[in-house]
Design a binder for these strands. Sequence first.
DNA 1: GCCTATTCATACCGTTCGGTATATAGTGAG
DNA 2: CTCACTATATACCGAACGGTATGAATAGGC
Lengths: 204, 204
Amino acid sequence: MNRLCTLTAPKGRPREFDLDDALAGALRVFWRNGYEGASMAELTAEMKITKPSLYAAFGNKEALFHKALDLYEREKLAYMTYALDAPTARAVAENLLRGALQMQSSTCDPKGCLSVISSVACSPEAEPIKAEVAKRRASSQAALIRRFDEAKAAGEFPEGLESDALMRYLFAIMQGLTIQSGSGATCAELNQLVETAMSVWPTK
Amino acid sequence: MNRLCTLTAPKGRPREFDLDDALAGALRVFWRNGYEGASMAELTAEMKITKPSLYAAFGNKEALFHKALDLYEREKLAYMTYALDAPTARAVAENLLRGALQMQSSTCDPKGCLSVISSVACSPEAEPIKAEVAKRRASSQAALIRRFDEAKAAGEFPEGLESDALMRYLFAIMQGLTIQSGSGATCAELNQLVETAMSVWPTK
DNA sequence: GCCTATTCATACCGTTCGGTATATAGTGAG
DNA sequence: CTCACTATATACCGAACGGTATGAATAGGC
């Protein structure tokens, strides 16, 4: 039933575009305009394919967004995973802040955070998008809490400071960073924000 | 030329709805859905007027948004002005954070920040909206920088900390707070965020 | 060559978008 | 009452929305 060798050419006319290239184009559009702000016309233009090709290859707009979000997390949010490997909570925070800063400093990618852009403003019919983004964010937050729990157990935290509180605080700064980046802040200003956040980072 | 007494009834058929009530309804819709996510159908439904009445009274969708934004800043962001009267930079920051927290704790208003919601995600044709929000935010930020300059001159700041850096940092936390509020954080969690931010607030 | 399967390009679907023409209803001025 | 003026309600506008039917084009299997 299942095809064992997927390298053999499938039966019909071969697809004339590259799936990954097209998905990268879709990601750019969603990133620039958010889920609802991205129109099929702009998507197909940037993906350099026609609408029927898009629907055949990706399903529909929502399914395309999910795949673009997968790509985004895999390629652009990878630093979030690596950041957790740092030896101290402070180093984890610095990795996260500098990772976010570096991403917002890219000259070829859109500004702001795809997740925030696509979930912060949505009309009623885009609630599923908001829910999906919230679900993924929750798993990132849970991972950071677990890492901070380790740090707390290692005696890194001042008294009274809880892991979830610190996670929430750090996420807020990162979210603010992406907001400010999206509304025209310069790299120098964002760097200033990171430096300030690190300069006040709690020590025991 | 100009009518000196505006209290006399104007000539034609009197308007059957209250301008302020209608505008308050529009604000609710823009606040829930953002500028682009708010449709004329939802606006007229919430404002309890018909489309021609809306256009006669407010101009068009963009002009209506501007008036709603005025109302929002006047009624919901008033705490930002009062906050600057506090005696120290730390008290200013606490006023701002607690003001934002209190606003997000309202059970009758939508969650999140209208300005962020309406400017963070917009398709190309909504760029003027983004620019207008950016302009207003810049004036708020300038006011906070001036206030922090006073505090710095009064010797409240640790060495090397600049007013604009601290402003940017504080705004980031407030923006993160509204993002988290809009994506389902509880009042307790937001309060935890404020407490954490205040607990790390820089002292000399 | 022929059949089947898949992609491609065009043209189109019904719905919703922001915005308006038109005709009627309600007011003050004369 | 009539006129001038404004607000109302209905019905409509062209454009853009997300999504698809259709037929030609291109491949493998026989």
